[in-house]
Each structure stands twice: as structure tokens, then as C-alpha cells.
Amino acid sequence: MAEVTVIGRGTRVRGRVVGAASLEIQGHVDGDVSVEGDVTVDAEGLVGANVSGRRLVVRGAIKGDLSGSEAVVLEEGARVVGDVRAPRIAIAPGALVRGYVQTGSGEGRPRAAARPAVRAVPTPVKAAPKPAAAPAPVKVVAAPKPAPRTAPVALAGAAPPMGRSPAAPAATAPKGPPPPVVPALKKGAKGALNKKKAH
């Protein structure tokens, strides 16, 4: 009969709340909330630990991470100290947040966060070797001689700003853009090039 669980205004829960139903918190909860349904924290609600659910609507105070599998909505009067992760996040004017806010797919997995960020970066790198040689930069080393000279230079310029992110797609993206690894020039390759040009 009662589909929605209501933790009333005068109620204090010191412990974990888990379940498959939806939850409305008007009182205090000093423990993790991990439900499969929606969670609504009312204006008088106070949660002292992480909250995870499908759709979180917050009007009260939360000291902990918020993790919505569908959306997180922080309305006016919300006070959140902690990270907020959900595919869709809405922060209304008047809501207070202090923490890491991350939208997008993936439930806060760092790899999922790195992937969309890195995808944007390789495209300018791809543009550089394109006029030189269409296939992967690694293959460019074996391609006609003029190409290795231009491609590595362009990559060398672009690689440092990306830092460690190229390592992630190299390991985890099988069909994505080719790993923007700076192809190592064989020792004496430049010398051989100059020699050939001299001839």
C-alpha cells in the first residue's frame, strides 16, 4: 500500500537505508541511503552520508556524495557538501553546493569521465597527420620519409598538454581514435634523412 517511504520530521535514523522503493526524507538520516527508487530530501531533511538513487531531488542539507542513476535536482534551499554525480544535474538558483559536480553517463567511474574528455582532444591531433598520412601515427613512421618529419612534430606539440590522458584511450578504446603516441624516431633516422637529401 505505502509505496513511498517517508522518514518524518521528528524521526532520526542512525543507520543505513537500503531498498527498492522511493524515499522521502523529512527528518535526519545519519547513514548511507542507497535505494533503487527516487529520493526526495525535503527542506527540513538532513542527511549525513552518501545518497544514491534513481532520481534525487534535494531541498535540504546533505553532507555526503549524491549519486543519481537518472538525475539529481538541487532546488532552492538545498545545501550539499559533497560530490554530485548523475547523468543529468540541475542546480536551481539558491541551491548551495560544495564539491565535485559531474554530469554525464557512468556512475562516477573515473574512466567514463576521462573518455568523453579525451575524445575531444585527439581530433585536433588527428588533423595534423591527416594531410601527411591518413592511417595511425604509429604507421606514419613506416610511411614515406617526409611524413615522419611533420607528423611527430605536430604530435610532440600536442601530446604534452594532454598529459596522462592519452594512456587511458590507448588501453581502453579499441575502436576509437588511434592512440596519440609520439612515434619514436629510430636513432639516426634524421641523420639518414639528411644523408639521403644530400644525395
Binding site: 513511498v4 517517508v6 532520526r12 543507520g15 527498492a20 547513514g31
Partner: peptide, 23 residues
């Protein structure tokens, strides 16, 4: 007066202190 309702799909592991009715 509001009451606290702990629905059918919910499990609470811990202490509950309520100032009101509990169902």
C-alpha cells in the same frame, strides 16, 4: 501530524528514533 512510514521495499539497518507515529 506527519508520520514516518517505512515502506515495503525499504530496509533500515540501525536505530530509528521518532517523535511521531511510525508505520
Amino acid at each position: 501530524m506527519a508520520s514516518t512510514v517505512i515502506g515495503a521495499g525499504i530496509t533500515i539497518d540501525g536505530e530509528i528514533t521518532a517523535d511521531e507515529d511510525v508505520v
